[in-house]
């Protein structure tokens, strides 16, 4: 492995962070629902961790990330503060958007996180704009744009790839093909066998890779980032993966049980972990220590979110009326 040890261990830890964050968020969401405090649509990233982590491990702090409705993983991988993410999910004043945005809308300009999105496919043109801005200001920042197989069927996909290629914008398009958009299989929505090969229609490189292999993701994105940072234009990378949970927790599961189990067996975390152990980069004891650190972090975030106040209605009304 030609990635340094520290980065590899960091990647494993971030994968655990995302996994355990999502489990914690799910638990709190369900408990809230039971208590009559329904908190919108929660989209879990469990199963797809290798993509956000692999991709963001190639980025600098000031590089941009354009996220989606399924964005907790992107936010965490880009270095988001777990306390503030969880507080936002709970609608608290201490959340990233002071409770205005919620789970689908995580922003942190300090780490280049340009927001999740409630509109499928809306992120692609915004990514073009961010990349345009870096090109304009000659900052050498790169924009990574995450989107799903479902978003790949919006017109915005085609418009954005065309412009990105035309203007050689510093952007990497990462399609997280988890095989479904809500309940609709990608095989019934995408006319060609895959999304990645559409790149040729825009004259840019395209890849289709195993999105559950974090090393493959990071190597592929690394190459695309290098290319685009040096002015050679965009790349489209399709990562094949699977979400473990239903689309969100108000939609009933419609996918075959066997299929879900089959993909759970391809869990990206133990797969990466085994490799690191084999290569003697980490040992079991260190892994256990890492996990308990992450759990402590989640406990602290939960406590922070629970103890944080809800936004003040009075202040909010004053703000609105002042406009």
């Amino acid at each position: 492995m030609d990635i340094n040890r520290e980065r590899l261990i960091g990647m494993l830890k971030t994968m655990y962070k995302i996994r355990l964050f999502e489990e914690r968020a799910k638990k709190l969401y369900k408990a809230g629902m039971m208590a009559g405090n329904f908190l919108g649509a929660l989209h879990s990233y469990i199963g797809q961790e290798a993509i956000a982590v692999g991709a963001c491990s190639c980025l600098k702090k000031d590089d941009y990330v354009v996220s989606t409705h399924r964005g907790h993983g992107h936010a965490i991988a880009k270095g988001g503060d777990i306390k503030r993410i969880l507080a936002e999910l709970q609608g608290k004043e201490t959340g990233y958007s002071r409770g205005r945005g919620g789970s689908m809308h995580l922003f942190d300009l300090k780490i280049g996180l340009l927001g999740g999105n409630g509109i499928v496919g809306a992120g692609l043109p915004i990514a073009i704009g961010a990349a345009f801005s870096s090109q304009y200001k000659k900052t050498s920042q790169v924009t990574v744009c995450f989107f799903g197989d479902g978003a790949a069927t919006q017109g915005t996909f085609h418009e954005s790839l065309n412009i990105a290629s035309l203007w050689k914008l510093p952007v990497v398009f990462i399609c997280e093909n988890n095989l479904y958009a809500v309940t609709t299989p990608a095989s019934e929505t995408i006319a060609t066998p895959n999304v990645g090969e559409r790149a040729s229609a825009y004259g840019i490189p395209g890849k289709v890779i195993d999105g559950n292999d974090v090393l493959l993701v990071s190597a592929t994105v690394e190459e695309a980032v290098k290319r685009t940072r040096t002015g050679k234009g965009p790349t489209l990378i399709e990562c094949r993966t699977y979400r473990w949970d239903p689309h969100c927790f108000v939609i009933t599961e419609t996918r075959p049980k066997e299929e879900i189990e089959e993909w759970k067996a391809k869990d990206p975390i133990p797969r990466f972990e085994r490799k690191l152990v084999e290569e003697k980069i980490i040992n079991q004891e260190e892994i256990e220590r890492m996990k308990s650190e992450v759990i402590k972090e989640m406990d602290a975030a939960e406590k922070f979110a629970q103890e944080s106040p809800l936004p003040s209605v009075e202040t909010f009304k004053e703000e609105v009326c002042a406009k």
Partner: peptide
């Protein structure tokens, strides 16, 4: 005259 906020008390308002 505002976009609808996420947080329950704000949304209700």
């Amino acid at each position: 005259n505002t976009p609808i906020p996420f947080s329950p008390p704000l949304e209700n308002a």
